[in-house]
């Protein structure tokens, strides 16, 4: 195949494919910061809520938890809707069934 044809094909693919883009999510990097700042107080080893990390749940389990707000609402008071979306995005992106760093520990 000629080079030009290939690039036309790729561009066509890109534009048809991106039409099915997932819904605009939260900011995962900010979510990590918010998670550490707001959740870790109660959710580190030995704290009242027990240790919670992104690996505690699968992606859909996290989404379910946030959708149904299955948590004592008082603990989440400080967080705006956008903040919670960011935390949700972070936990989703690093959930137990997400891509993990492929290091030796």
């Amino acid at each position: 195949m000629k080079l030009q044809k290939l690039f036309v094909l790729v561009l066509a693919l890109v534009f048809t494919a991106t039409a099915v883009l997932a819904v605009e999510g939260g900011n995962s990097r900010k979510g990590k910061y918010l998670f550490k700042k707001n959740c870790k107080v109660c959710h580190s080893e030995g704290a009242e809520g027990g240790n919670v990390t992104p690996l505690s749940k699968t992606q859909s389990q996290w989404d379910r938890m946030f959708k149904k707000a299955k948590h004592d609402p008082k603990a989440w008071e400080n967080l705006s809707e956008k903040d919670l979306l960011d935390v949700n995005q972070f936990l989703f992106d690093h959930a137990s069934d997400s891509d993990q760093p492929e290091t030796c520990g």
Binding site: V10, V14, A17, T18, L21, A22
Partner: peptide
């Protein structure tokens, strides 16, 4: 181009 969290195109 991040098509979905699990698929992307790179040029």
């Amino acid at each position: 181009f991040d098509i979905t969290p699990r698929a992307f195109i790179k040029v």
